[in-house]
Simulated scan of single mutants.
Amino acid sequence: MSNGENWQGDVLRDLRAQLDGSAWGPPPADGAQPAPAGPPQDRMPYDQAPPQDPAAQQYQPPQGRQPYPQQQPYPQQPQVTTQRTPESRPTVDGSLTALGRKPRGGEPFASRAAHAVWKNVSSSASREVAEITRIAESLQQPVTTGRQIAVTSIRGGAGKSTVAALLGTTYAHYRQDPVLFVEADTALGSLPIRLGTETLRWTASDLAEIVKPQMSLLDITGYLVQLQNNSWLLPGSQGQIGAMLDARGYQRVMVALRRYFGVTVVDCQTLPDEVARVALSAAQARVITTPATLDGIASTHAVLQWMRALPAHVIAGTVVVVTELTPHAGVDVEAAVRTLRATGTTVHVLPYDRHLAAGGVIRTDLLARATRSTATRLAADVFQLSQKRH
């Protein structure tokens, strides 16, 4: 470079020298024709740098200026470890599927016929239609963030999975946004059976290792069990004893899935399981089921008394469902409801239903009229409570 004032021109001359034909490869052998100027058709490998022009190597930047940094090689991409793809398993063992009988209606034919006649001749039928319309409007309210509703119980056999299935099915019927069922009971959860799922594959524990923030709804639903009416199921296990879902995995899944679904109904383990306690504290509304028995009511009442010492929104956002598992309850249901309501909670009674009592897949067309009415009102009350906590 002859003049430090014209260093830009020197840089351009150096670049032109590197673009000369001799800079693209070794010189031709003796007797061979020289290669034409410019790069050949077949480019050299990325890891082979072109030889440097001697003129370019003599270039030194003027004082006060730093040389151009050398281009660093691309970092080696880490090896991507793929998640093990589990095999599909039947929800119920094939040797047991033949044990179920033909499902029955939730109420006798005579009761259904009497109610049909009553609707035609009673003046209160219009009031019933107006009430159903009001409830439907409350269930269809839009949400800004996904609502999570946790369903648990104090002991097993309280109708926890049944209530979770009824709630989620009601939301999926009335709402347009996606609804998710999550089975957080990895021991002996019956939610997939109640929802009519035939096979299970990916579980909540599997998805906890896969889910990423950049995933789309289409990516997520590929790992879920698709149900009817724009709803999906995330099983807790494949029906195997010993499957585990820890609190950290549950939190990771629920935080990631919250933005995809308008309403998520979680079927938790019984209290005081760790995942159940985490689910209750993170949910916008809580449902505790209890059988209509003396020990069930007493245990639930003790838990509600303990919850009164927690922040006020916990007890205010809790609904108790008293399930009548037999035609004749072992306690005075009306007195039990008054006792539980005295703790500051909302209480609903799920009446005895022959269809629900038989177990197996829940068919809404076979539910008793009182069961459908209770499930709809329960879903509306729980949804309203979930909207109050933002």
Rank of each mutant, 00 (worst) to 15 (best):
L245E: 00
G100N: 09
I149C: 11
V265M: 01
T374P: 05
R363G: 09
Q70P: 11
D332P: 01
S123N: 03
D10I: 00
Q226N: 03
L166V: 00
A309G: 08
A165D: 04
R389C: 06
Q238W: 00
Q141A: 12
Q57F: 02
E131Y: 11
I315C: 07
T203Q: 01
T343Q: 14
L167I: 06
L191V: 02
A256K: 00
T374W: 12
G31F: 11
R65Y: 12
T221R: 11
L234T: 09
G236D: 04
K119V: 10
G189E: 08
P50L: 07
L310H: 15
S281R: 14
W118D: 15
G222S: 13
T221S: 08
P108E: 07
L367Y: 03
P213T: 04
V92R: 13
Q71V: 10
Q83A: 13
T376I: 08
T300V: 12
L340D: 08
T346D: 14
E87Y: 05
Q33T: 13
N229W: 04
A336Q: 07
P272M: 07
P75C: 06
A358C: 05
L356K: 00
Q60R: 15
R286W: 15
F109H: 09
V80D: 09
S88G: 08
S373N: 07
V121Y: 11
T97K: 05
T270Y: 04
A370Q: 10
G236S: 03
T199D: 10
T169D: 13
Q238D: 05
L304M: 08
R286I: 12
W118F: 10
P45F: 04
P61S: 02
A114T: 03
I132H: 06
R101K: 14
H328M: 09
G189I: 01
S2A: 13
D295V: 08
W7S: 04
L166R: 03
A165T: 15
S126R: 15
R201F: 02
A285W: 11
G64F: 14
F261K: 02
Y174D: 12
P235K: 02
S153L: 05
G344W: 02
T91N: 08
G64D: 07
A283C: 04
V143D: 08
A32S: 15
L195M: 09
A172Q: 05
H313Y: 13
L180A: 03
E5T: 08
R147P: 00
W202F: 11
T91S: 09
T318P: 07
P142S: 04
K102W: 13
D10C: 08
S373H: 13
F181T: 04
P45Y: 05
G168H: 10
Q226A: 14
V319A: 06
P78T: 06
L325E: 06
R252Q: 03
L99R: 10
L350R: 11
M1V: 05
T197P: 02
V321R: 02
V143H: 01
T133E: 13
T170R: 07
A114N: 09
V333S: 01
A55F: 13
H348Y: 15
I210M: 11
D353L: 10
A29I: 02
R112V: 05
P178Q: 03
R341A: 02
T346Y: 01
V129P: 00
Q48M: 14
G157N: 10
A336M: 09
A302I: 09
S122L: 11
Q148S: 04
R369E: 15
A358M: 15
S124K: 14
Q284A: 11
R194V: 04
G359I: 12
G106T: 06
D30S: 10
T290C: 09
